[in-house]
Design a protein around this nucleic acid. Structure first.
Length: 580
RNA sequence: GCGCCCGUAGCUCAGCAGGAUAGAGCAUCAGAUUCCUAAUCUGGGGGCCAUGGGUUCGAAUCCCGUCGGGCGCACCA
């Protein structure tokens, strides 16, 4: 990447220079940690343009009081470019005011960087593996899966903007009992396709989406397997059914604009002997032993019997009990395979992020324990986070809307996207922090004109584009040549715009894409507000009669704000429309 | 019984690795439209940040307890 640092980064640099000068002068002891020093806009804009807490954070280590240190720092900070005043306030904040040139330069920077404004190298090119969706390949995506898909996808984009190399991965659970059930369900549909009339017993998947799979199998195999024993058809039927389900899931994800780089198969992992490798390594390090599982607490099980199983010592890492990696029939537990899978992922990435539904919260500790055990033991510590996405309560007209996987009568993702559109679904899912539960009310979201933030944000972009087209018709071209003519109102808008790079960095570091959505709403609000000044005051419109130079400057500003909205929406995977 | 998440305006939610007088939308009240599409804007009222302690210059934010809501607690996935 680039280039001149964006405004906040630049002033963080100036602050460091000032602190260095104080160190050189002996006012400040050398080597104090500056990690908690920030340069931010003050919460109250009347305090100034930039605020730093440096004096308060460093005073203790310097053995002095914050205000005294602040005074020394101020004499250095006023040397930074475009600083018109530096005031000490409250317990030791330093508030800086900047000349308009500072903001106009930032506007030029947006113009120069265009679609790259907001990108940074704060991730230093490190590779992050983001695993998300990973729904079982037994049916179409339903709304319960949607939030994790959107959050994971936006997070992946966000991390790329922050300078990480990102692997978007989907783990296909194609080795457990549920895919055998799928195969049996499909076998029924296969017989049905060959003319039998059947009822679907409890315990099999009843969904009609399996009918075409049955027809496909009938076309491929004829009646070869109609009365054959399960052992003969289970594997081929399972393989084809899983492939068909994955095609369907990928199509559903495409409707949402979600695409993965890598699909990893649990069955392939097992076939390659990865769980055995992991087990051997863990046994060699005394992290797996043969022992008895405790009876589950808090509920009574009639058929509970103690059995000896290979157990992973997750209690050493804070889990409540040690966890089995194999079942009594010798096959791998989900955890046993998942552990090997994470081992594999850790080999190819510097950091791992899993996006899981909150219903899997109970298994977070064991998998974190496993990753910690394997990556620490191997001498390569790997940051690993599990982001839990809370449940989405589907609502219709204010009342809960029930989904039931079992009945096959669930609300599919495809249905919802068709009803309300990809952009609305994505943006709505991102206007809440993921760890909070949310309601998704069809009626509200569909009707959704005024109340829906996505339209508000998209309208800002569309409004800008429309005005630029109109200006072009009138022979006006955006130009930075006379941006010095822009005034305080325009600078206020640029100040909001200038937040974008630091916002992207902070959101990426916190792994919180929803912050981008909230920022875009603020930016759109600032823009609409500015734009509406022109309602009563024609001289404040983009296109000012008899003043081509000012018009060109304002159109340039508008162009950059539009670009910024587009950049932010790009992170979220929402389209920046030209027209509404 | 145990673990995890949540609790901020009447409602739905933000609150940027602890910062200054806690913000926005909806709702409500008072206004603005021969408008660059009102899918908009301006202003007012509305808060013991669930609650009790603790940590420090400083807490909605971090720690502990309590209460309330959600999710989970099999060798399932």
């Amino acid at each position: 990447m680039t280039q001149t640092p964006t405004l906040y980064a630049a002033y963080a640099g100036h602050l460091n220079t000032a602190l260095d000068a104080l160190e050189a002068a002996g006012t400040l002891p050398a080597g104090l940690a500056r990690g908690n020093v920030t340069v931010e806009p003050p919460r109250d804009a009347s305090h100034g343009d930039l605020a730093t807490n440096a004096a308060m954070v460093l005073a203790k280590g310097a053995g002095t009081n914050p205000r005294g240190l602040a005074e020394a720092l101020v004499t250095e900070l006023v040397k930074a470019p475009h600083v018109t005043s530096a005031d000490i306030a409250g317990p030791g904040f330093i508030n800086l005011r900047l000349a308009p040139e500072a903001w106009l330069n930032e506007l030029l920077a947006i113009g120069t960087m265009g679609g790259d404004y907001g990108r940074s190298d704060s991730g230093r090119g490190t590779t992050v593996n983001v695993e998300y969706v990973s729904t079982n390949p037994t049916g179409p995506m339903h709304m319960g899966h949607c939030r994790g898909a959107v959050v994971g996808d936006a997070l992946a984009s966000l991390l790329q903007w922050a300078g990480h190399t990102v692997i978007r991965e989907y783990y296909i659970n194609d080795a457990g009992g549920q895919v055998d059930v799928l195969a049996r369900s499909v076998h029924l549909r296969y017989r049905e396709a060959l003319g039998e009339v059947l009822e679907i017993p409890d315990g099999l998947y009843p969904g009609e989406y399996l009918i075409p799979v049955g027809q496909m199998l009938a076309a491929e195999f004829g009646n070869t397997y109609v009365s054959a024993p399960e052992a003969e058809w289970l594997v081929p039927f399972r393989t084809r059914a899983v492939a068909a389900m994955m095609d369907m899931i990928k199509a559903d994800l495409a409707l949402l604009g979600v695409h993965h780089d890598l699909f990893s198969s649990e069955a392939a992992l097992q076939a390659a002997g990865k769980p055995e490798e992991a087990e051997a390594w863990l046994r060699a390090h005394d992290l797996v032993y043969d022992g008895q599982l405790e009876a589950p607490k808090g509920k009574t099980l009639d058929d509970w019997e103690p059995v000896e199983l290979p157990l992973f010592r997750s209690t050493r890492f804070g889990d409540d009990q040690d966890r089995p990696i194999k079942k009594s029939d010798g096959s791998w537990t989900y955890f046993g395979a998942d552990l090997a899978y994470h081992f594999q992922k850790a080999e190819t990435a510097d950091a791992l992020v899993d996006i899981w539904g909150a219903d899997h919260a109970g298994t977070v500790k064991r998998i974190k324990a496993a990753v910690a055990a394997m990556t620490l033991g191997a001498g390569r510590e790997k940051p690993f986070e599990v982001k839990l996405v809370q449940m989405v309560q589907l609502m219709k007209g204010g009342a809960p809307f029930k989904m039931s996987k079992r009945s096959g009568n669930f609300v599919t993702l495809a249905d919802v996207v068709e009803m309300v559109g990809k952009d609305v679904v994505r943006f709505t899912m991102l206007t809440r922090k993921p760890e909070a539960q949310m309601d998704f009310d069809f009626d509200k979201v569909v009707e959704a004109s005024k109340e829906n933030p996505v339209f508000y944000v998209q309208y800002a972009h569309a409004r800008i584009r429309r005005n630029l087209r109109k200006a072009a018709d009138e022979g006006l071209t955006p130009s930075p040549q006379h941006i010095a003519m822009l005034g305080a109102e325009e600078c206020d808008l640029i100040k909001v715009a200038a937040q974008f790079p630091r916002l992207v960095e902070a959101a990426a570091a916190a792994r919180e894409p929803h912050r981008v959505a909230f920022y875009l709403y603020d930016l759109a609000s600032a823009f609409h507000s500015y734009y509406n000044l022109g309602n009563d005051q024609p001289e404040k419109r983009f296109i000012v009669a008899q003043n081509a130079e000012l018009s060109a400057a304002r159109l340039y500003l508008a162009t950059q704000i539009g670009q910024l909205v587009k950049n932010g929406l790009a992170i979220l995977g929402v389209e920046a429309v030209e027209e509404m």
